[in-house]
Design a protein around this nucleic acid. Structure first.
Lengths: 167, 167
DNA sequence: TGATATACTTAATGCTGTTGATAATCTCGA
DNA sequence: TCGAGATTATCAACAGCATTAAGTATATCA
């Protein structure tokens, strides 16, 4: 039914890939908006860039230099400086100097930061589960696999795209 | 294998729903970041809120009052005023007064705005297709259906949540 | 040593988000 | 008809972040 269509992309048409693209974009917008409001809660008081920056440090569980952190979170170095400033003010991360190369600034998440991330992840889980509650188990399994493949494709294109920029 | 787990949600566990939630959040962040860069192209020069506001007007293909537009795009009324200001400056939308209730401001997309949306949708399609190119046809079909259901769940929770806010 | 490259920060500007106040208009009861 | 209160949108002040360009410190290497 849907074969052949993906090869030759007709500009004005609404093919299956375009449907996925529209769904992903719409879900992305809603998810980020809802999450933004959650992060604004008095318990957290984080912004989206602050959260994703902190999350990356939490996930890698190691020091990370500024440029790598910027790359991983898709922010410019200039933006990241301010984001890390505010995270450091709240004592959620710490800045260190790389002993070998004193130009590099290494960032690590603190215990305080780790605790906050755990709290936020829990709150977000509850939020998202309300939206996913009507899926049955088998759908969940399939969705997990498909989303993983989408994510893989997106990160791969990011890496191989001309310095992360398209079009 | 995954039955029973969804009913009783164990806080610290990493269940299948949590996996979906993490994938969706990560995809959302990446998709919005990449799209932000695309919109920054000299051909478009739009921001994300500007695009989604314009897109909604394009999709409903009718006048829309400010409060409905704010609701639909998940922005505060105060933010939206500025967004519409800038869209109007670029002559992508027009403001009108509602004849019956002169408090209401009605917004419509212009021809210029429609053309720009069409261009952006085309560019975005190409961008996204690079990321989805490695999915096979059957996966595409399944993914479409699952994403639709996720989207349905998210919008439903939004509507029935306490005035769009959670936690 | 001195030129160049690298890593990060700073400065300036615009957009957006939040909150609270304000202005204009409508509704409805007295 | 008048006026109190509700509704709708905007404004004002402030913080965060994106972008760009310039600046500082350090490293590398001829």
């Amino acid at each position: 039914m849907t074969s052949e269509i993906r090869e030759q992309v007709i500009p004005g048409e609404r093919g299956p890939l375009e449907q996925i693209e529209q769904s992903i974009m719409q879900i992305s917008w809603l998810a980020q908006r809802q999450f933004m409001q959650l992060l604004d809660d008095e318990r957290f008081r984080l912004t989206l860039p602050q959260f994703y920056t902190l999350l990356h440090l939490y996930q890698i569980a190691a020091e990370c230099k500024m440029s790598d952190l910027a790359e991983a979170t898709q922010q410019s170095a200039a933006s990241l400086t301010g984001v890390v400033d505010r995270l450091a003010e709240k004592q959620l991360v710490e800045r260190k100097r790389h002993p070998g190369d004193r130009r590099q600034v290494m960032v690590v998440v603190t215990d305080r930061g780790r605790m906050l991330i755990a709290e936020i992840k829990q709150a977000r889980r509850e939020q998202m589960q309300a939206a996913l509650a009507h899926l049955v188990d088998q759908e969940v399994d399939v969705l997990i696999q498909l989303l993983d493949r989408v994510l893989l494709g997106m990160t791969r294109v990011l890496e191989h795209g001309e310095s992360g920029r398209w079009a």
